[in-house]
């Protein structure tokens, strides 16, 4: 088994198995979606007009929650030191961590997103597009959020700090995804895919620099 596949297996089992895996994020997602009709009012027309956007925003928030343990636990128990000395470059280690995070938490959320949107009254025809946007967006959120998690290593009040760092960076994907949902695909979907590809390619560099800085 190559070091890379071994690392991937480890990260996947960690993010799937420990701390309930995708369950807390899914529960949070369901909770936020339940709160929305309580806050806005139960009128179907009003709910339907905001449903896809709210389902999308709740996804971005749910993706934030699980970021804190992306690096923090490995940082505290010294595993991150070992990984930085290992044969796999640190950039790739960070990318693998984010990828495992996406598979274990992002994809289950992406499957839940159309259900939440339909329950709020979005048209059924929109469901595949919502799932696609959510899967792409969750990948972008995992990688951009990983930068926040790596930068906040070794700080006080990690969780809140990650949210403050990452939310301004989430503005473009939130806009593109929301645009794709209102326009039924088109330019918004392409822009979202482009932003996601750029985040996947570039953010490991920033993550590795931040992790090296924290380990020094």
């Amino acid at each position: 088994m190559s070091p890379l596949t071994a690392l991937f297996g480890r990260e996947l089992s960690l993010s799937w198995g420990r701390g309930g895996g995708p369950l807390p994020a899914l529960a949070f997602y369901a909770g936020v979606t339940t709160m929305l009709p309580l806050a806005v009012g139960p009128e179907p027309e009003r709910l339907a007009s905001v449903a896809p956007g709210m389902a999308w925003l709740a996804l971005a928030l749910a993706a934030l929650l699980s970021l804190e343990r992306l690096f923090e636990r490995d940082f505290e128990d010294g595993a991150l030191d070992l990984l930085s000395l290992g044969p796999v470059p640190l950039e790739l280690v960070c990318a693998v961590k984010c990828l495992a995070q996406w598979i274990a938490i992002g994809l289950p959320l992406a499957l839940a997103a159309p259900i939440a949107a339909l329950a709020l009254g979005a048209p059924t025809a929109l469901a595949p597009l919502i799932a696609l946007c959510a899967a792409l967006g969750a990948l972008a959120f995992a990688f951009a959020g990983g930068m926040g998690a790596a930068l906040a290593l070794g700080s006080r009040r990690g969780g809140l700090l990650i949210a403050v760092i990452v939310l301004p960076l989430f503005a473009p994907p939130v806009i593109f995804g929301g645009g794709a949902l209102t326009a039924g695909g088109g330019a918004g979907l392409l822009l979202l895919a482009a932003w996601t590809a750029a985040a996947v390619a570039l953010s490991p560099l920033a993550m590795a620099a931040a992790v090296r800085n924290a380990l020094d």
């Binding site: 006080r156 700090l161 931040a210």
Partner: peptide, 23 residues
């Protein structure tokens, strides 16, 4: 916020610099 949350000054400076460039 990032700059003030990390106690070690050189580490805080470098993490904040990475964030500034990402921004």
């Amino acid at each position: 916020a990032l700059r003030s949350a990390i106690d070690d000054e050189t580490k805080a400076g470098r993490a904040a610099a990475i964030l500034a460039l990402v921004g």
